[in-house]
Amino acid sequence: MHQYWGFGLLISSEIEFPEFLPFAFTEAPDLTINLGAVPAELTAEGVVKKVKVSITATEYLQKLPVATYYVANGNQIIVEPKPDADEKSIRLFLLSNAMAAVLHQRNSIPLHASAVMLDEGIAIFCGPSGAGKSTTATMLQQKGYKVFSDDVCVLKVDGDQVTAVPSYPMIKLWADTFHKAGLDMATEEEKIRPQLPKFARFYHDEFDILPKTVKYIFLLDSNNTIDEVSIKPLASIAAFAQLQRNTYRPVQMNAMQKRNQHFAAITRLTNAAPIYRISRPLGENTLTRVIELITNVLQPNE
């Protein structure tokens, strides 16, 4: 079995994951990933059935074109791949869906956010897919910041402090971002799925798995009724309404009835760090301006 660290968990896996951080441990794993046969259906009372997925508080069954995934009790994933499926696709959907189910089953709070490290703590970037979370983290990495996490941060509430742990040391970027961010184009080998123009950038060398305090929160959005990039500090109530939309996999959160604990964590987060909303017009390359506004907040004296 391969041994890894990912999403704050010690993972023992039959499948090799270049995405996770290799991590030798002797204690019992938090999570085991195996290949094998999965149940045909979930039959427990109160099962919530959505499209291609069935969910209870302790079980999750998702039937996708590349594989069927079964997750139980927050400590077990079983994968049954389809005969012609490619390994990258099988891993991608496991990392983005089955893993989220593991976290929800364990009462963790995954937030849809990328993050970079500061001298003390982290700055996180929230927003829906396509909002620019990964691109922002990559651009800041180019400016000397270390990337903390891409796409997902797992929150831990401890009194008034809210800390987070990262997911795994890989950033996913669309092909056009490489040019916009001034990076060398990725290779075919680095595609996250064979027919998808999205690429993996690993950062295992600078990956830090220690929990970090959330110091700044930036909400990223784009719309077509504005002409230029704007930044606006948000008061707590408005911030809560915006932040709670960034729960990772709300379908799971609702089906597993975890709304209350998510909302409690987000309330804490709202009170723990200043929140800024950055809005940009669609369809223009506004990256430089967005990064400038963010660094003005992070380093006010420079």
Binding site: K50, V51, K52, V53, Q62, L196, P250
Partner: peptide
């Protein structure tokens, strides 16, 4: 909202 998927993948 209906699939629990990130459809950009």
């Amino acid at each position: 909202n209906s699939t629990d998927l990130d459809s950009t993948y």
